[in-house]
Design a protein around this nucleic acid. Sequence first.
DNA 1: TTGAAAGCGGTACCAG
DNA 2: CTGGTACCGCTTTCAA
Lengths: 355, 355
Amino acid sequence: MTDRTTPTLASIAARVGVSVNTVSRALRAPNTVRPELRQKIRAAMDELNYVPNRLAGGLSGTRSDVVGVIVTSLHHSEFASLVDTLQAELLAQDLQVMLANTRYDPDEEVRLVRAVLSWRPAAIAIVGIDHPPKAVELLKAAGVPVVEMWDVDGPVIDTAVGIDHRAIGRAQGQHLVERGYRRLAFLGSLRDNDSRAHKRLAGVEEATSAAGLGHVVRRTEPLPGNPDLGERLLGELIERQSDVDAVVCNSDVIAYGVLRGLRRLGRDVPGDVGVIGFGDSEASSCLTPALTTVRPDREAIGRLAAAAILSRIDGGGPEIRRADWRLMTRETTARQSRIPLAMAAAIPADPLGKG
Amino acid sequence: MTDRTTPTLASIAARVGVSVNTVSRALRAPNTVRPELRQKIRAAMDELNYVPNRLAGGLSGTRSDVVGVIVTSLHHSEFASLVDTLQAELLAQDLQVMLANTRYDPDEEVRLVRAVLSWRPAAIAIVGIDHPPKAVELLKAAGVPVVEMWDVDGPVIDTAVGIDHRAIGRAQGQHLVERGYRRLAFLGSLRDNDSRAHKRLAGVEEATSAAGLGHVVRRTEPLPGNPDLGERLLGELIERQSDVDAVVCNSDVIAYGVLRGLRRLGRDVPGDVGVIGFGDSEASSCLTPALTTVRPDREAIGRLAAAAILSRIDGGGPEIRRADWRLMTRETTARQSRIPLAMAAAIPADPLGKG
DNA sequence: TTGAAAGCGGTACCAG
DNA sequence: CTGGTACCGCTTTCAA
């Protein structure tokens, strides 16, 4: 701290009495510098607490060491673990994560894509495959590898890693039907631009109509999902459709509120009403009754996404990869079946998510 | 896409027929450029999908527009919402978040501090006040504003925003004592370098010893917290100390597993055993029995941290701010008290966290 | 209102 | 093995 300015390669060079160039090589290609000199340079750097300037490095060199990660939400741990995994795997390759959160706002998404691109990232990982046209245009024009995550079904920009949401919806619906539930409802946080949730909903409807059941009643709002919202939506649902006997929740946290609400209303779960969630949050297996839900292989998505990013940076070609998911059958749907198995068998499903 | 190279200010300038710096000014100081020209420049940028290069901008200009955010974990939504809030508030000021996750590894922390500093951030926000000496040295040498989050009690680098963990521990212990619990245990994920958890534990012990009770039995592991770990630790605890009648869990997810385990063991909660958590995760109010826990004002921490960052960037001085927290009294500790109130009153506590 | 030119801190290609 | 020297793309005086 004797010097008020941040040390640069030049200050190190001056201190050691060599050229800037040599110092740079001492970092980038150590074996092209005499060990003794290298040692002195290292010492000087340590002493001055030198930290390389990546702005300069990135501007000059060819490669930048950032990867932009754009998610739609962080609050409800939906994507927190994804970001966590990505960060860890990329860091192992000395890649820094620049994080952005659109909060499901398309305008914000365009803005963030631009902001992230302005750092000239080596790649961009982004949640979803439904983006505002301008965002897609920017992404394509930038010529950066883009890895879309969580959804893979539909037009993809470049590379995608995700799960088959429609198949998940089918499995949810089919499971309820098999367990004898007949009047299904879909509840939760749902945004117009959350095509993943819409695909799951479509899957549920596919299953019910295949079973010859009526429409799936829905009660949704474009607000962040949490138990209070779940309980409120349940209340509103029951008020105008009191004969519903199964609720598909768009997320586990919504389901938590739904279960709390049903308890307060004195409805028995799974006897009177069945409940199924999506996500398999940590608490789900600890509730009483324990929540039946769908567990996407989050870790796999993170790992595959990281691998895809690295591969693309490394010159590999675009690809589409699906991760697995599992129906976690627990107590909230543990009702005795009332329909013949033959009928249930007629319902299409794809439990392995292999498309 | 007629041009294979990314557009630069120069390409825009060439296209419009002006100098580079006119284009630059059109962005940075629009009113110093003739509206008509400005219009043409805008059009060219739009057409070419121009995205400014912040590496160049940051290198040249004085201010950088990144804020480094260093957390210890993301998985269990412990800090996810914090990051979420920070990101949103900073973005409003056109500041980008560069995220790093130490996973409670001190070596990693040093490495990440260095990595983040290499982007010459306008400020750094970091979880905790206990950092490896080298990290502190780097941070101080860099002369960047540093905002430490979640903990404020102890030596601080610069500015800090957090809650009083010791007071929280005292309140947890006192609450259990008041409810008549006598043999307390502390369970959960606990790392040596997680001084926040250690402070809460110390607070619990302070409360029990003030009440004249014996030592708090502890059963911890330096692993990520989750329900399975909670249930396992509970099992191990009961095995060698079966008379424990209250469990302080280091996080709500641990408590979920503890409750599940107690249920399986046939112990009544809150009758036989009381359970209290920390964090007030979303599911906590939906469990049966609902979990008594402590809710830190997460949103306030995020907001205050963002405000502190902005203020420091803007030339404001260092400061220390405490956020509030609340004991959420629910069912898992709803046992009738067995001790005279006078005694309970003797236990120090500071429920408002004002230090 | 606009343009020319000097950096910002590195990297990379040369020559020595 | 080491040093000289053009840039990288943008910001910022200083003139015009």
